[in-house]
Amino acid sequence: MITYIIRRLFAAVVLLFVVSVITFSIFYLVPRLIGGSAESLATRYVGRAATAETVKVTTERLGFNDPIYVQYANWAKGVAIGTEYDYGAGVEQCPAPCLGYSFITRQPVWPDLLDRIPVTLSLAAGAALIWVTFGVSVGVLSALRRGSVFDRAAMSVSLAGVSLPIFFTGLVCLSFFSYKLGWTAPGGQFVPVSENPAKWAYAMVLPWITLAFLFSAQYARLTRAGMLETMNEDYVRTARAKGLPEKTVVVRHGLRGALTPILTIFGLDLGLLLGGAVLTEKTFSLNGLGKYAVDGIIANDLPKIMGVTLTAAFFIVMASLVVDLLYAVVDPRVRK
């Protein structure tokens, strides 16, 4: 078991390293490979209006003329232990994790991200709670009553859920529940949970439901398929033959077996969402990571995009690490 944990941790570290190399290459190496010069990279930092001389000095100062591995090492050092930047307006401290400065605002990216993570986290965690509870329950009931009216209705609704895009369901919900009925907050009113939990929930409930609707649908279908399979397993027949009440048979024997694949998908979904639920954040004007990344893309503000990319990758790697460890808890055959 301990070697298993160590190996998973080790794998996670290696994975993070690989992700950082790839991210770095995309942002620094690829532009060079497709014909950009060191100066053209520097231009982005100083703006197009700068003189050739400024560009040249900046290029040198930011190290764009160094060999690529030196550049990576400097960059990685910044992320890991912090670094100093100098755009010509004096040396600025950039503490770890230094993800660079926004081209536009000249502000370091990391504090910005820190501001936005709670929003995305609130959104993802709340929605996840809803969709797991709801999706799994519907899936189990559907499987147990296969072919019934409930099953067919649930599966039709979930088909709709899977197919309808967030910006559609989100806008419909907004216009109906917020603007027409006034039950929920309109978009863009995030309040940290530490400040006022009630207001926090009031602002988040609609995004949660919208996001959860999409995922519940997926999870209901997944759970249903899994349950149909495990309820036909020999061990479920054994559980019945022991005289266990049907509820115990379903939950402890059937569902337990069906949950493993759901756990895997859940980890990855959650990790993915923590990197920013772009559509939901945009639809409900939530200032989360996803919206931050989109803003960065629109403004061609590379450090922002890169910051979000790295953060998202970090969350995904962590989520899959947690899933792997949970796997060993759930399935004794994995422990070796």
Binding site: T238, A241, G243, H253
Partner: peptide, 19 residues
């Protein structure tokens, strides 16, 4: 079931819950 009448099955591996 299990009390007055009990049953054993063909494949003991798949007939027991792996978890």
């Amino acid at each position: 079931r299990g009390q007055k009448m009990a049953m054993i099955f063909q494949d003991p591996l798949s007939s027991m819950h792996p978890y």
